[in-house]
Write a protein that binds this DNA or RNA. Structure first.
Length: 258
DNA sequence: ATGTCACTGAAGCAGTGA
């Protein structure tokens, strides 16, 4: 089963790329972040290509979705900060638990949103804790808005001491990973980390001045069943792109789901 | 060089968030 996660920065503005992506990458499950829509979510569009969708959206901001070509269990929405922000959606598909996560950006280090971001990470780790050692696959993917280390930043000096790269953010991400989550892109593929986000500003894409802030975290049980994974960087170079690239993984299904 | 994109409300542009 191929699971793909993408911060689309408005689902309605990205239908042309989603259609292309569904044909070329053929994901069984699509985890979306920043759908930026409430009731106008394009459910029919996904249906046309054989996907059912769970969506937790908001007008203008945030919004997470799970689309799948397999039956899905009902979705769980977690409002970790109690602000009604649509940032975490979870369900189970063919025995695999999947979650679409959009961690708050945090604005700036001296902004109140920064503390909220760290608080969100704390709640997220706590919620995910029981899934780590379960005898079931869990895949947690999305935009974490944190570049784990200097290797995840093309030009570290430009980001030193800024949001996405502060010590406290990196610590929060590292603490989550230390619970036992596999950082698929870094851990399994072993090569130089591909970036997942290039700002729209300043020709960042053209100069490959990116950051790796999107992740696909696998529980140990899922890690053992992972056959492939990667970052589909090419979508960042298409017309009217999202500023993020998708990340994906392929998992072997348990016999009872084949 | 506050540089780019997408949203909203309100009117074809300003403010916000990323």
């Amino acid at each position: 089963m191929k699971i793909l996660s993408w911060n689309v920065n408005s689902v309605r503005a990205r239908l042309h790329l989603l259609e292309d992506l569904m044909h070329k990458e053929s994901p069984d499950v699509i985890l979306l972040q920043e759908t930026k829509v409430l009731e106008a979510f394009p459910f029919e569009f996904f249906q046309t290509f054989g996907y059912k969708v769970h969506h937790w959206g908001q007008k203008s901001y945030n919004g997470v979705a799970i689309a799948a070509r397999f039956p899905m269990t009902p979705a769980i929405e977690k409002d970790f900060l109690g602000h009604g922000e649509a940032r975490y959606l979870e369900c189970t598909i063919a025995g695999i638990r999947v979650a679409s996560v959009y961690v708050p950006n945090g604005g700036a280090l001296d902004h109140p949103a920064y503390a909220k971001k760290l608080e969100f990470m704390h709640h997220l780790a706590k919620h995910l804790h029981p899934y780590v050692d379960a005898l079931q696959s869990t895949v947690v993917a999305g935009d974490f808005n944190i570049a784990l280390s200097e290797e995840d930043v093309a030009v570290p000096m430009e980001w030193e001491g800024r949001i996405l790269c502060s010590q406290a953010e990196r610590n929060a991400m590292r603490c989550l990973l230390h619970e036992g989550w596999g950082d698929l892109i870094q851990g399994t593929l072993g090569k130089k980390n591909p970036y997942t986000w290039w700002p729209y500003q300043g020709k960042a894409w053209e100069q490959n001045k990116g950051l790796r802030i999107d992740y696909m975290l696998l529980s140990p049980f899922a890690m053992d069943r992972c056959q492939a994974g990667g970052t589909s960087v090419c979508w960042r170079g298409e017309p009217q792109p999202s500023d993020h690239a998708p990340v994906w993984a392929e998992l072997r299904l348990e016999d009872s789901w084949k």
